[in-house]
């Protein structure tokens, strides 16, 4: 039996409250060219939910009224969303750092060449999924052949300056475990990934982020089917590190979904736990949530506080 996350916080005399909001994360939809087995949002080629131009306009208006240090565009595969170029152009002027999460394969399609030029011109930071240097391990999670295509796209991005020192084009990689186990220490993993990516593929990048798989969505279904659910949840709970709570991303982030609804983070979004406990859309939000507001939690929060945490 899992201890409720809120009780674990209380046992450590901790509260999870918001600080001032510095990051706007925009989930532009569930449509994706891949159907990764760990996806907490169950994104895939058959999903049709994408952000409309009207919702994009509301998001851009909000970002223009309230400047965010970071704006983080995620999905699904954002590259597949019609009018994504309009959104990126509209957001770029209103933030210090515009980030785009990419699975790499969606960006490498020939019909996305124009979008890639825009991304380069706007100096958008790319945050790319690259779970493992080992092709078999990566493909087991993301689909056959995805690893090779990802490597090819990273090599191409390198030739365009991404990840190269002094280019101003930042390329970060994101790695998550290939199953029901916890991630490696981030700094150790980054060192190894940098050495191996360079040695095997001649790829360079700026930073590696590691995170534990979220017990939500498609990964939760796999945990249940494979008989790993109880053990995995207990391991996440046992690895609770109170030192991670101060730096959790949900404290400074506002998450807006493809339909404009608001959440404390992308994981509460997947779990259906709305910001402030009530349904609210971005066009009705007068200002970002104020510091001190309580953040709703669930058992998935243990994935962000395990070990070194996901901050």
């Amino acid at each position: 039996m899992l201890i409720p996350f809120a009780d674990t916080l209380a046992a450590h005399n901790l509260e999870l409250t918001r600080e001032s909001t510095r990051t706007l994360q925009i989930n532009v939809g569930r449509l994706c060219d891949l159907a990764c087995r760990h996806c907490h949002l169950e994104a895939g080629p058959t999903r049709r939910e994408v952000m409309t131009p009207e919702t994009m306009a509301a998001v851009m208006a909000f970002a223009a009224r309230h400047r965010f240090a970071v704006i983080d565009v995620t999905g699904g595969a954002p590259e597949l969303v019609p009018e994504i170029s309009t959104l990126l152009r509209g957001l770029a002027a209103h933030t210090d750092q515009l980030m785009l999460r990419t699975n790499l394969t969606a960006l490498m399609a020939p019909e996305r060449a124009e979008l890639l030029e825009l991304i380069i011109n706007l100096k958008i930071t790319l945050v790319a999924s690259f779970p493992s240097i080992n092709a078999r391990q990566a493909d087991a999670q993301r689909g056959v052949g995805v690893s090779d295509r990802s490597v090819a796209m990273l090599q191409m991005l390198n030739t365009r300056g991404y990840g190269q020192p002094g280019s101003g084009l930042l390329l970060h990689l994101v790695a998550n475990p290939g199953g029901a186990f916890l991630p490696d220490d981030q700094s150790a993993a980054e060192l190894r990934f940098k050495q191996e990516a360079q040695r095997r593929f001649g790829i360079v990048f700026n930073q590696l982020f590691t995170f534990a798989n979220m017990p939500l969505g498609r990964f939760r279904s796999w945990l249940e089917k494979s008989g790993n659910e109880t053990d995995y949840l207990q391991r996440l709970q046992a690895a609770f590190n109170p030192c991670t709570v101060t730096g959790l991303m949900c404290r400074t982030l506002l998450s807006v979904d493809w339909d404009g609804h608001l959440y404390d983070c992308d994981f509460n979004l997947a779990a259906g736990i709305p910001l402030g406990g009530k349904t609210l859309t971005i066009d009705a939000l007068p200002e970002p949530p104020v510091a001190g507001t309580m953040i709703a939690t669930g058992e998935h929060c243990y994935a962000c506080t395990a070990g070194s945490g996901f901050t």
């Binding site: 078999r136 290939g178 916890l182």
Partner: peptide, 12 residues
């Protein structure tokens, strides 16, 4: 086995 996977080793 678990420790190796968690530290980023693969089956090969």
């Amino acid at each position: 086995t678990r420790s190796c996977l968690e530290k980023g080793s693969h089956l090969g």
